[in-house]
Design a binder for these strands. Structure first.
Length: 912
RNA sequence: GCCCGCUUGGCUCAGUGGUAGAGCACUCGCUUCACACGCGAGGGGUCAUAAGUUCGAAUCUUAUAGCGGGCACCA
C-alpha cells in the first residue's frame, strides 16, 4: 500500500463529507435505537449575507465536537442548521446593488424589491453554508431552515398574535432610537455608545421678568429650539426661589417654566437642565412626569422642522447647532464653551449618530417575560452558563433591568407585522389577511408596512425550527435542546430572548446549558473586525494548515479570549502529520493482521490483560507490559476526555489526546512493540502484535474523531478489517464510517496503576541511560553495556522481561540485571526508583571529575528538595493539622530522597 | 460612575491550597528501516505588586497598578 510520507489535508477533506451527508449520517434517523438518549443543538443562525469568520469557525468546531462525540456515544443526535434573514444587513446589501444600477428600493416598490432580495438570496446568499461544509460540521442539512421560510414565518405571526391578545404587545408613541441613515427605529441593543471629544455649551436663558438669567449646559444646543422647561433639583438651594418661575426661551419667544425634579444632578453643569421631551430619552421621561408639551424640531432625516422656526427649518442638525451658537453669541447669551468628552449613541451598523425621536412603534412588554427568565434561573439554575462566572450574573442583572423591546422596524425585508388598519384607524391583529378581513368585517384594510426586528424571529429559533406551533415529533423529541454555544455579545440580544419566548410559548427552557466561547483576538490583543481589517480568514487557514489542525487550535481556545497564533495551528498541523505517519507505520506492517472489533469490548479482555505479570513470558499474545500499559493509558485517556467534554473543557480534552497519541502511543508504545511488529518472518506472535497495534490505533482514531473528523476517517477507512460491526449498536445498519463507531468507554477495569508504575520505571531507566549517553557525548551509533541493580524483585522482573526493548531503545549491546549493582569504577551511574541503580561502564571515556560533578548536581537538587520537605515536617503544627496522607506522602518522598542521596554519595566516593 | 475578567518561562496559553506545565522559540547531538511537519538530551519562571487568612498560597481575602470587557439617564 502506497502512503505518502506527508499528510495532505486537502485530499481527505474532499473525500468524505459528501458521503457522510448523502448517506444520512448527520440525520438523527441514522440512529435505530428507539430508546436512545437525545442530544440536540440549534445552531446560532448565521446571517444570510455573512461569510465564515473566526467566530463562526470557533463555535462550529465546539458544536461539532460535541455533536460527533454524542453521536458516537449512541445518542439520537440533531444539530439543526439554518440562516437568519438579517433584516437591515440584507436590505442594505441589495440596496447597494440597486444603487449600481442607479436605482433605489423606492423605484422598484416594495413587492419588486422583496422579489429582488429573494433572487439575491438564491444566487449569492448563503455562501456560508458551503464554507460550513468545508469545516466538516455534522449538521443535518435535510432540516435546514431559514427564518423567512413559510413555516417559520407562520410561527412568527402566531407568536405576534398571541402576544397581542395577551396584552403583551402594544403600539405606542414613544421616544425611540432613530437612525437617520437607515430610516428605521432601533432597539437599545442595536445602539452603541461611543466616547467622543465634544463641547459642552453653557447657554443663558433670561427670566421672563427680566430679573436675570439661568444658565443651562448642553452638548446639543440645537435641541433648545424644542425646549419646554428647565429643570432643577428640588433640594438645590441656588434655585429654590426660581422654581415655578417663567423663562423666555431665546430665538423662539416661547415661555417655558422652571420645574423641580429629583433626577437633576446638583453637581453637574450648572445644576439647571434644559428639557427637550421630543429629543432626549431622559427629558422625555421628565416631560411625561410633568406633563410638558413635546415640540418636535428635528425630523426623521435629522433636519430641523418648521416648528424649529423659519430660520432653522430644513437645516441639518449640525448646521442648526452652529447657527444656534452664533445667535446666542450675538445675543450675549453664550456664557462659555468647555471641552467635554461624552458618549454618543450610534447606529451599530452604519455608525450614524442616533436621533432620539418620538415615534409610533410596536413594543413588546418585558415585565412578565423577564420574570419567566429570572424564575427559571433562580429556581432551577437554568440555563446553566459555562463558565458560570461572569455570565450568569451579567445575564440576571440584565433581565432585572430590562425595558420594553421596540420590535417594529421601518424596513421592507423581514416579517411584515400582522396588523391591519381599517379606514377608521381600528387595529386588527390577525394570522392572515383573510382572518383580518373576517375579524374586521370589511375588505378595506391596510397592513402595517413595518416589519419585525430580526431578533424577534431569532428568539423563536429553538422551537420554530422544530415545527412549532404544530406539535411535531421533532419538537417533542429535540426540545429543549441540550446546549447553546455562542459568543458573549449576543447573550442579551438572543440568548435571553430565546429563554423568555421558550418559557412563554412552550413552557420549558430552550436549552440546558449555555457555553459561552472566548473571543479570538488578533496578535496585538485587539478584537478582529471588518473595519480594522485585522481579521484572519479561517478559509485561508484551512488551505494552509488543514481543517483538522485548525479545529484543534480553535478547540483549544475554550472559554477565554486568545490571541491568534499561527504557530499553534502549525504545531497541530504537525500533530496531524504525526498521526498520519504513525498510521503509515502501522499499515506498512499490517500484513497478516486485522483490527479486532471486539478488542476493547471483549468481555474477557480486561481479565486477560489484568491476569498478572507473566514472568515466564508464556502468553506472548497479550502479557507484555507495554500492551497492558497502552491499554491502561488508552482507557484513562478516554475517561479523561469524556469527563473534559462533559464540562466543556475542550482545551483539556485536546491536551489529553495530544499527549496520549504523541507521547504514549508514538514515543513509547510503537517503539516498544516495533521489534515484534517488524519481524521479517511471519509468525502468530508477530501477527498478534500487529493486530494489537492496529487495534490501539483504531481506538485512538475514534478518540480523535470528534476533533479531527477528516484525517481520522481517512485513516480508519484504510484499516484492514473495519466495518459496520465497529459501529455503536444504534448504527449497525449504516455503511461503515468512523463517525458512527462507538466512542471508547474508558473502562475502569482496564486502568491499572500497578502496570503504569512498572512502565514508568522502564521509561525512567531508558531516559536516564539516554541522558548519560547524551551528557557523556557518546556517539549515537556507539553501543554501550548497561548494568542494572535492583533490590526489588518486581522491578528486576520488569527489566528482565524487557531487555530486548531496553537494548533497542538505548543502543545497548548487553544488559545485565542483578539485585546488587557491581559495576566497574569507570562507569556513569544514575539512581532510579525503588532503590534501583543503573551503570554504564565507560572505560577510557569517562572523566571522573566531570562525572562526580554531574552526580553532585543531581544530589544538590535532591538536597534542596529535602530541605524544604524537612522544614515542613519539622513544623509541629503541620503534623498536627495536615491530612495524614499528606504527611505520609512527604515522609515517603524524604525516605526516597535519603536513599538516592546515600547511593549518590557512595557512587561519588567510588569515583575518587 | 458601577460591575466583571485578565496579569504564570522569550511568545501564545493551560493549571492548581501541599514539590511550577504544554506548544512554539532557544542550546546540544542525530538523515536510527512511520514521521526533519521528525528523533534523543537539555537550559529557562521566587506564577503583576503589597498586606492578610492558613501548618502551608502561585492557588483563598483585601488593596494597588497595568491591560481588556460589560453596564449606566449624567444634560
Amino acid at each position: 500500500m502506497e502512503i505518502p510520507k506527508q499528510y495532505d489535508p486537502k485530499e481527505s477533506e474532499q473525500n468524505h463529507y459528501e458521503r457522510w451527508e448523502s448517506q444520512g449520517c448527520f440525520a438523527p434517523e441514522v440512529n435505530r435505537d428507539e430508546n436512545a438518549p437525545v442530544f440536540s443543538i440549534a445552531i446560532p443562525p448565521p446571517n444570510v449575507t455573512g461569510s465564515l469568520h473566526m467566530g463562526h469557525a470557533l463555535q462550529h468546531t465546539m458544536m461539532d465536537v460535541l455533536t460527533r462525540y454524542k453521536r458516537m456515544c449512541g445518542y439520537r443526535t440533531l444539530w439543526m442548521p439554518g440562516m437568519d434573514h438579517a433584516g437591515i444587513s440584507t436590505q442594505l446589501m441589495v440596496s447597494r446593488d440597486l444603487k449600481k444600477e442607479g436605482l433605489t428600493r423606492h423605484d422598484l416598490g416594495r413587492e419588486k424589491f422583496i422579489e429582488r432580495v429573494w433572487k439575491w438570496k438564491a444566487e449569492s446568499g448563503g455562501q456560508i453554508t458551503k464554507q460550513m461544509r468545508r469545516e466538516g460540521v455534522s449538521v443535518d442539512w435535510s432540516r435546514e431552515k431559514f427564518t423567512m421560510d413559510e413555516d417559520l414565518s407562520r410561527a412568527v405571526r402566531e407568536t405576534f398574535v398571541l402576544l397581542y391578545e395577551q396584552g403583551m404587545i402594544y403600539r405606542g408613541n414613544r421616544i425611540v432610537n432613530w437612525c437617520p441613515n437607515d430610516q428605521t427605529v432601533l432597539s437599545d441593543l442595536e445602539v452603541q455608545k461611543d466616547p467622543q471629544p465634544g463641547k459642552l455649551y453653557y447657554l443663558r436663558y433670561p427670566l421672563k421678568d427680566g430679573s436675570g438669567t439661568v444658565t443651562v449646559a448642553t452638548t446639543r444646543p440645537e435641541t433648545m429650539l424644542g425646549d419646554t422647561a428647565v429643570a432643577v433639583n428640588p433640594n438645590d438651594e441656588r434655585f429654590r426661589d426660581l422654581v415655578g418661575a417663567a423663562l423666555s426661551l431665546p430665538l423662539t419667544g416661547r415661555e417655558i417654566p422652571i420645574i423641580a425634579d429629583e433626577f437633576v444632578d446638583v453637581e453637574f453643569g450648572t445644576g439647571a437642565v434644559k428639557i427637550t421631551p421630543a429629543h432626549d430619552p431622559n427629558d422625555y421621561e421628565m416631560g411625561v412626569r410633568h406633563s410638558l408639551p413635546q415640540i418636535v424640531v428635528i425630523d426623521t432625516h435629522a433636519k430641523m422642522t418648521d416648528d424649529a422656526g423659519a430660520e432653522f427649518a430644513g437645516l441639518d442638525r449640525y448646521k442648526a447647532r452652529a447657527l444656534v451658537i452664533e445667535k446666542f453669541e450675538e445675543l450675549g447669551l453664550l456664557e462659555k464653551v468647555d471641552d467635554y468628552e461624552f458618549s454618543i449613541s450610534k447606529c451599530e451598523r452604519c455608525r450614524t449618530v442616533i436621533e432620539p425621536l418620538i415615534s409610533m412603534q410596536w413594543f413588546l412588554r418585558m415585565d412578565t417575560l423577564r420574570v419567566l427568565g429570572l424564575e427559571l434561573l433562580e429556581g432551577f439554575k437554568k440555563p446553566r452558563f459555562v463558565p458560570e462566572v461572569p455570565y450568569e450574573k451579567v445575564y440576571a442583572n440584565w433581565l432585572e433591568n430590562l425595558r420594553d423591546w421596540t420590535i417594529s422596524r421601518q424596513l421592507w425585508w423581514g416579517h411584515q407585522i400582522p396588523a391591519w388598519y381599517t379606514a377608521e384607524g381600528e387595529v386588527i391583529v390577525a394570522r392572515s389577511a383573510e382572518e383580518a378581513r373576517a375579524k374586521a368585517g370589511t375588505d378595506e384594510l391596510t397592513q402595517d408596512p413595518d416589519v419585525l426586528d430580526t431578533w424577534f424571529s431569532s428568539a423563536l429559533w429553538p422551537f420554530s425550527t422544530l415545527g412549532w406551533p404544530d406539535e411535531t415529533v421533532d419538537l417533542k423529541t429535540f426540545y429543549p435542546t441540550s446546549v447553546l454555544v455562542t459568543a458573549r455579545d449576543i447573550i442579551f440580544l438572543w440568548v435571553s430572548r430565546m429563554v423568555m419566548m421558550g418559557m412563554h410559548f412552550i413552557g420549558n427552557r430552550p436549552f440546558d446549558d449555555v457555553f459561552v466561547t472566548g473571543t479570538i483576538l488578533d496578535k496585538h490583543g485587539q478584537r478582529m473586525s471588518k473595519t480594522k481589517m485585522n481579521g484572519v480568514d479561517p478559509l485561508e487557514v484551512f488551505d494552509k494548515f488543514g481543517v483538522d489542525a485548525t479545529r484543534l487550535t480553535l478547540a483549544s481556545v475554550g472559554a477565554s479570549d486568545t490571541r491568534w497564533n499561527e504557530k499553534q495551528v502549525e504545531s497541530y498541523r504537525n500533530f496531524a502529520n504525526k498521526i498520519w505517519n504513525a498510521a503509515r507505520f502501522c499499515l506498512m506492517n499490517a500484513e497478516g493482521a486485522t483490527v479486532e472489533p471486539s478488542w476493547h469490548a471483549h468481555p474477557a479482555s480486561a481479565e486477560r490483560l489484568n491476569a498478572g505479570v507473566d514472568e515466564h513470558g508464556q502468553d506472548a499474545r497479550a502479557a507484555s507490559l507495554h500492551d497492558r500499559w497502552i491499554d491502561s493509558r488508552l482507557n484513562k485517556t478516554a475517561r479523561d476526555v469524556r469527563q473534559a467534554l462533559a464540562e466543556y473543557q475542550f482545551h483539556e480534552a485536546v491536551q489529553t489526546l495530544y499527549h496520549f497519541f504523541w507521547d504514549d502511543f508514538c514515543d513509547w508504545y510503537i517503539e516498544l512493540t516495533k521489534s515484534e511488529v517488524t519481524a521479517e518472518e511471519p509468525s502468530p506472535e508477530r501477527d498478534a502484535a500487529r493486530g494489537r497495534l492496529l487495534s490501539v490505533l483504531e481506538q485512538a482514531l475514534r478518540l480523535l474523531h470528534p476533533f479531527m473528523p477528516y484525517i481520522t476517517e481517512d485513516l480508519w477507512q484504510r484499516l484492514p478489517g473495519v466495518g459496520s460491526e465497529f459501529h455503536h449498536p444504534a448504527y449497525r445498519e449504516a455503511a461503515p464510517t468512523i463517525m458512527l463507531a462507538a466512542y471508547p468507554e474508558g473502562e475502569a477495569s482496564l486502568i491499572n496503576e500497578d502496570i503504569e508504575w512498572e512502565m514508568q520505571a522502564l521509561i525512567d531507566l531508558i531516559s536516564r541511560v539516554r541522558n548519560i549517553r547524551s551528557e557523556m557525548n557518546i556517539k549515537p551509533g556507539e553501543p554501550v553495556r548497561i548494568m542494572i541493580g535492583a533490590p526489588d524483585e518486581k522491578l528486576r522482573a520488569v527489566f528482565s522481561a524487557n531487555t530486548n526493548q531496553i537494548q533497542r531503545l538505548v543502543r545497548a549491546s548487553e544488559v545485565t540485571i542483578s539485585a546488587k549493582l557491581e559495576a566497574p569504577k569507570a562507569s556513569a551511574r544514575a539512581v532510579l526508583v525503588g532503590g534501583a541503580e543503573v551503570a554504564v561502564p565507560l572505560e577510557g571515556l569517562i572523566d571522573f571529575e566531570a562525572e562526580r560533578n554531574r552526580l553532585g548536581k543531581e544530589k544538590e537538587k535532591l538536597q534542596a528538595e529535602a530541605t524544604k520537605l524537612e522544614a515542613q515536617l519539622a513544623n509541629p503544627q503541620f503534623a498536627e493539622r495536615a491530612p495524614a496522607e499528606k504527611v505520609e506522602g512527604i515522609r515517603a518522598r524524604l525516605a526516597d530522597i535519603a536513599q538516592r542521596t546515600m547511593q549518590l554519595d557512595q557512587t561519588i566516593e567510588n569515583l575518587r
